Computed example of a mutant assay.
Amino acid sequence: MSQTVKGVVARSKGAPVELVDVVVPDPGPGEAVVAVEACGVCHTDLHYREGGINDEFPFLLGHEAAGRVEAVGEGVTEVAPGDFVILNWRAVCGECRACAKGEPQYCFATHNATQKMTLTDGTELSPALGIGAFVEKTLVAAGQCTKVEDADAAAVGLLGCGVMAGFGAAVNTGGVTRGDSVAVIGCGGVGDAAIAGSRIAGATTIIAVDVDARKLETAKQFGATHTVDASTEDPIEAIRALTGGFGADVVVEAVGRPETYEQAFYARDLAGTVVLVGVPTPDKQVTLPMIDIFGRGGALKSSWYGDCLPSRDFPMLVDLYRQGRFDLDAFVTERIGIADVEAAFEKMHGGDVLRSVVVMEGSK
């Protein structure tokens, strides 16, 4: 039998979100129903509401989530009812050319649930990133559920998107290791996660770059050894000065703008690595002299979801959290109710929060 639960929906571009009844079907083959315990309010959800992703309204928002499996469909072996899971938006297929090469983190055929959740009048909902977790219960592909040890859902659920993207950009894509120098341009949630990942990986010089003094102060809590206020000084020269005049081994660009990408390119050491994890809008373009691209060597990489493999990375990062070595709690600025998502978007505009996290009633 299908269930009717409360969820947060964006009906049209730019309109305030609404708390409505959502119909969740029983899981079909390869699917699972998850009782959501907590879900972070991510910039991507705001982009959906503003029509910046696509126009497939109405959207069921929310995707940085953790909860407990309630039911599974036929053929599901990855998880079972009662398992505590973090949701991810990349259920790997196991069959595409990337998976066949043993690189499932680059799977080209990731998938979501086949069935649709709906409004009570039958209108199909488009779940944000194939998850839709600002809802009491959600339907996902079973492969979107990663079983982990029990932990605070509000904290570990953030691994479902932003924190994993930043951590993985530094560690998985950038290959940061002990003794490295790292610069991170843009110190929101993703940038701070890149800083934290660099510290855990053993980087000895970690430079946080932003134009907001508040964000720079917060970056220190995650492991930044130096800060650069790009509103008052040239970040390229500042990063070079802090790295013996050479530039950083790895520069993570967590903004997604041409000017900050150019800063990242010139702030790296010869043969250094630039990692783009900030998401640019389709109109953004960057122009660099080809002789500089050729002459500086190294690598220019983009990082999609931190090049993560949830089945590998989520349990490891939860273990680090439980050991006190990865402070996921520090990313949680406030815990809010499911009716407070619109207010959280307003706080996001003002840069007042790192993450607001919706905690479902009964899970506090």
Rank of each mutant, 00 (worst) to 15 (best):
K215V: 04
G175F: 09
A113C: 11
C93E: 05
E124Y: 01
L129P: 00
R214W: 06
T177F: 07
F265L: 14
A98R: 11
K13F: 04
T123E: 06
K284E: 14
F246E: 09
G247C: 08
P29L: 05
F108Y: 09
A141M: 02
D21Q: 15
R68Q: 11
G337Q: 06
Y261G: 00
K220W: 00
F134W: 08
K364M: 12
S231W: 07
G351Y: 12
A264C: 12
V228Q: 10
E95G: 03
V209W: 09
D55C: 06
L317H: 02
G67F: 04
K364Q: 15
Y266K: 12
I131Q: 14
T120A: 14
G40S: 03
V76F: 07
A238N: 04
S12G: 12
T232F: 06
F326C: 00
T120P: 14
G122R: 13
A71H: 04
Y106T: 05
L125K: 06
Q105D: 11
L158M: 12
A170I: 05
E233G: 04
S198L: 01
K6V: 02
L328H: 07
L60G: 10
T225L: 02
D329E: 13
P310Q: 11
H47W: 11
G337A: 10
V182K: 02
T225C: 01
E136P: 00
T44R: 12
P315M: 11
V85M: 04
C42V: 08
R322V: 01
G298V: 13
A100H: 07
G244I: 12
P289R: 15
R322Q: 13
L317Y: 09
D26V: 07
G73F: 10
L354T: 15
A154N: 03
G157M: 05
P25A: 04
T138I: 01
G324W: 04
S311C: 00
Y48R: 09
A32I: 01
V358N: 06
G174M: 07
A66M: 01
N112H: 10
L270Q: 10
H43P: 12
D55Q: 15
A113P: 07
V359Y: 10
G189R: 01
Y305R: 02
A133H: 01
A32N: 04
E253G: 05
A113E: 05
A224W: 10
A201N: 08
S181A: 08
D249R: 13
W304P: 00
H47K: 12
G168M: 05
G174P: 07
N172M: 11
K6L: 13
A65C: 07
A154Q: 01
K284V: 12
L61D: 08
A264P: 08
R49T: 11
